[in-house]
Amino acid sequence: MFALLALAGCASSIPQTERVLADAHAYPKPVELATVPFYPQEAYQCGPAALAMLLQVAGVDISPEQLVPQVYLPSREGSLQIEMLAAARRQGRVPYVLSPHLETLLTEVASGHPVLVLQNLGLSWYPKWHYAVVVGFNLPQGELILRSGLEARHVVPLATFERTWARGRHWAVVILPPGRLPQTAEETPYLAAVVPLERLKHWREASQSYEAALKRWPKSLAAMLGLGNSHYAQGEKCEALWAFRRAAREHPGSAAAHNNMAHVMAELGDLHNAEKAALRAVELEGDKQPIYRQTLDDIRRQLAESAPGKTPRVSCPEPAGIRRKSVAHRRADIR
């Protein structure tokens, strides 16, 4: 059914191309990312080849051959989209799936970001799935430039590209160095793309990505908590504390922010403030989430066990610029 629909659709409409060409003055000059490397594909291996090109640009020195065991699915003689994304994560990079618009794709290329695309070069009832990398375009000529298959510089009319790309459901991905955001990234999808790095313990790259996200979306609660969690996982407790503090200050209604802050405070020996924060989390959502109650009990037990005045306490003076209100800066010391 989908095949029939797509066949009906492919013959006629190229709405995105028409829209982009009507607005061609937005890019009067051709754009081409000449420095994107080219790997000609081996048989059935356009996936590893295209992925290697993007990863090289993202600062990962990896060859298509090394990617074959990570993405290639022998019985299908090809590579699945999900595995292409997963393989990028394995190198500590955030694969970001773009919104399905030609304009988005052009914006990324114009920002210096090559774009991985899935095309169906055949027809819907005779699909030939293919990965290529968009590296440039020339709107006055109505053309797109791809690294594709055996061609380092495959120039294709925008209209044709749109048809082949639409048959791949407009799938487009950018993969960038850690801490660099796609030009067209949106907050929630971007953070959802970073989170899976945590699962693979790419904490450094995750924290760099959350930090970049916070620069663009300074109010993002998920980015603050992600930053705190990824610092914490790296044993950077002061940095984690700052992130959770900022989250609790700017989102006072977030029980998670208070809960995680309480944990770090307790581990740094600041049990009194930890108790306050844990209590706040319980007040906010204790009835819904037993874990907040657990945190509070845990901290109270530690309070009861610790001899007063003898608790080792590490203080974390916040670096200038983290908070506006001036605070009494304490020196990092162990009493």
């Binding site: 291996q45 996936g47 299908r76 003689e77 997963a86 994560r89 169906n120 298959g149 899976p196 699962r199």
Partner: peptide, 26 residues
């Protein structure tokens, strides 16, 4: 390979792997 997937991706693969496009040879 499976470790690098999210829960949603795993679920999608489990239910419709064979309907998914596999980019291969043009």
């Amino acid at each position: 390979r499976v470790d690098a997937m999210t829960d949603q991706e795993v679920h999608a693969l489990a239910t419709k792997l064979d309907q998914m496009p596999a980019g291969g040879d043009a």
